[in-house]
Design a binder for these strands. Structure first.
Lengths: 226, 226
DNA sequence: ACCTGAACACCGTTCAAGT
DNA sequence: ACCTGAACACCGTTCAAGT
């Protein structure tokens, strides 16, 4: 009758309800059923508690979403090789966001939408600023570089998972859908149809990243790179 | 007793209910009160009709949101000067997205989140591909350039309106908040605090755009630019 | 300090009924 | 073809009551 867990005394069946457990349950629910399926009631059911119990650890649903965004962002693994050239370290930083975005694909809309003000969001910013300085850029430029890199990291993901689906009807069955396009207004889209239908998000991502890093290399610097 | 409108016969007080009127009412509501305030019931009330009347023109709320996204994107003004150098035409294209994003700031999360499959979304894609070809790039490269430009356009906006607020607590009262940061883990953020607190989204946007366009100029081309 | 059930004011959407 | 009210199954959150 003994289960795998050390059941002696069995003081409490479930671990204590905490903000962390609530946030993780929410993330699991979102990844399994999508962001629309998230409700306080569903999360409570998942954890086997009454709805109102959640409110002892989270002030409201907005705060829960904030917690989800924070948790995802804090999952960014910002490993760094200080001996590598700054170009490669920049690439690694931007890729780190892409990696976490792939880990929590359905949570991304929340991350991209909800604002939160924990310091976890500052970690990638700090890293980007540090790298820009290592590359020899002055402070003003470093801030702008950080913002451009963040814009690309966010946008590349956004385009890949959501807005890219602007071309949604081209994806499913290209041949049929391209036929419906007006040849006069969309000549290039039609001509490049096969290429547009092909999906290599990795290559697309790296292409844009190369553009940016290359542009940074060409940018005049205050000091020479370390 | 005659009002400004030509009231003779006064055949119907309100214009007919259409998908267009519903979408525009939704957009107005979102811009006035935020995306969370949008509900079928609120839209119906706004238009002075019963909730269920909406369902004669829109299958469900998701489709309404799709309509909102479409309407906003179709508002992109893609004027073009074919005699201008392609670099400037590319800039104008990317700026067009930024402009519409500023026109409907609170609708942007929906545009960036909802997928829709009308051809309006293909207009900027077609333009980007045309410009890339005019610049002398081959088809495969043109598609990748288009995607990189879209990623930046989306991300720059995203960062400015939402995720940028990751640094939210730095914005409000910099001095006080920077003091709370751990000096050992965020040295650059702290050192560049004043610069981070300064807001010139226009300059930030143009900086990143310059990086990308400059990178395109440096990219090897199949043919010389027209 | 934490948990809970009942209640309230909202949702989106189905259905059956009207014109 | 379009509109409508009632009803259903859900929401988030307040409140008062428990331990």
């Amino acid at each position: 009758m003994s289960s795998g867990t050390p059941g002696r005394d069995a003081p409490e069946r479930r671990p204590a309800l905490t903000r962390g457990r609530i946030v993780r349950a929410a993330i699991g629910l979102i990844e399994r059923e999508g962001a629309d399926a998230l409700s306080m009631r569903r999360v409570a059911a998942e954890l086997g508690v009454a709805v109102m119990s959640l409110y002892n650890h989270v002030p409201n649903k907005g705060a829960l979403l904030e917690g989800v965004a924070e948790h995802v962002v804090s999952g960014m693994e910002l490993q760094d090789d200080p001996s590598a050239p700054w170009q490669e370290r920049v690439r690694a930083l931007v890729r780190a966001f892409r990696t976490v975005a792939h880990e929590y694909p359905r949570c991304m809309t929340i991350v991209l939408t909800r604002r939160f003000d924990t310091t976890v969001g500052l970690r990638p910013a700090e890293r980007a600023l540090a790298l820009a300085e290592a590359a020899g850029f002055d402070g003003v430029t470093a801030v702008r570089i950080m913002r451009a890199l963040m814009a690309y990291a966010l946008g590349a993901q956004m385009r890949e998972i959501g807005f890219g689906k602007m071309l949604h009807h081209l994806d499913t069955s290209p041949a049929e859908n391209f036929a419906k396009l007006d040849a006069a207004t969309f000549p290039h889209v039609i001509a490049l149809g096969p290429e547009l239908a092909r999906h290599d998000p990795e290559a697309d991502f790296e292409f844009g990243l190369d553009l940016l890093v290359g542009a940074l290399e060409a940018l005049p610097r205050a000091r020479s790179a370390r």
